[in-house]
């Protein structure tokens, strides 16, 4: 059962921000409700006001400018099935296809997922590796933050109470050289690894060298984190010879995380799995860089 609340349905971002500014901490933005309503049912959150943002047209748009813009109220399902996203950033569509289950994907939104900042989010980890930015709207104007600056910690973001998350912007990235691998037996993943390889020449042919590598590890820390030391080991390596360094890169990533013991596993176990799955994700990304889709599958894991 839910406690009673007042439901507001603004039709513009300005109207929504004015409501959030006026009601302060008494109001919470509401979109799909797949995270929010769970906490409200448990009584962990008791907002007297919900501001439904789904009627705000600009928040529901997918647009292809210089960057791909994903509106905050776009559902996982729309992302998964959007021809634009599948063409421009197939990895994003592929990861969206594996978020939670079909009922959550039908209703849950990209903005809700990111603004909720659950540490076990697939999208936050992926977007960190893809150098995504979020756009925030407030009565004072608009600002853009990198995903890394936006997600501050578990269930904590840089969004101010009167701000609305408008959407996500993705810089163009050679998608064939990226991979996301998640692992776990629970509803939410135990581990998520996103790898994106920038190649010199950038056309994704075999023999190219890695110019810029991004590795993001999610679910094992308070927020998704880039593995800078591990990334540095990949710079200048030929994609054909990635196998020579995957062991060292995986070990370096494992040394860079500080997991806690919980129901997903012990800290030692998670660290070991980080090493294993960074190796695996890197091999997949390197194969894609060479134009090959590897026919790999791992137990209790999803390769997106």
């Amino acid at each position: 059962m839910l406690r009673p609340f007042t439901l507001h349905r603004p039709e513009t971002a300005e109207e929504a921000c004015a409501l959030l500014a006026r009601l302060g901490e008494d109001a919470v933005p509401y979109a799909g409700g797949t995270e929010l309503l769970l906490l409200m049912k448990l009584g962990l959150l008791r907002p007297p006001h919900l501001v439904d943002v789904k009627r705000i047209r600009e928040l529901n748009e997918l647009a292809d400018g210089g960057r791909l813009t994903i509106g905050a109220t776009v559902t996982h399902r729309s992302l998964e099935r959007s021809p634009l996203v599948r063409a421009r950033c197939p990895l994003v569509a592929s990861v969206a296809r594996h978020v939670a289950n079909v009922r959550v994907r039908n209703v849950g939104t990209i903005g809700g997922n990111l603004a909720f900042a659950d540490p076990h989010s697939d999208l936050a980890t992926l977007f960190l590796a893809l150098d995504a930015h979020v756009e925030l709207v407030s009565p004072g104007g608009r600002r853009e933050l990198s995903l890394g600056d936006f997600v501050r910690g578990p269930w904590e973001t840089a969004r101010r109470p009167d701000e609305l998350l408008a959407g996500v912007r993705l810089a163009p990235w050679p998608s064939r050289a990226a991979a996301y691998v998640k692992f776990g037996v629970h509803e939410r993943p135990t581990l998520g690894i996103a790898v994106a390889l920038g190649l010199n020449g950038g056309d994704g042919r075999a023999g190219a060298r890695i110019q810029d590598a991004r590795i993001a590890v999610g679910c094992v820390g308070p927020r998704p984190a880039r593995m800078f030391t591990a990334e540095a080991r990949l710079r200048g390596v030929s994609v054909d010879r990635v196998d020579d360094v995957v062991g060292a890169v995986g070990d370096s990533a494992a040394a860079g995380v500080d997991p806690a013991d919980d129901l997903h596993g012990s800290a030692d176990y998670k660290r070991e799995m980080v090493a294993v799955f960074v190796r695996r994700a890197l091999r997949v990304a390197a194969a894609r860089a060479g134009g090959v889709e590897p026919a790999t599958s791992f137990p209790y894991a999803v390769v997106a």
């Binding site: 439901l7 409700g33 769970l38 079909v102 009922r103 959550v104 039908n106 209703v107």
Partner: peptide
């Protein structure tokens, strides 16, 4: 036509 969880849907 779209599957949803009625337990978590207003």
């Amino acid at each position: 036509g779209m599957a949803v969880s009625a337990c978590t849907y207003l």
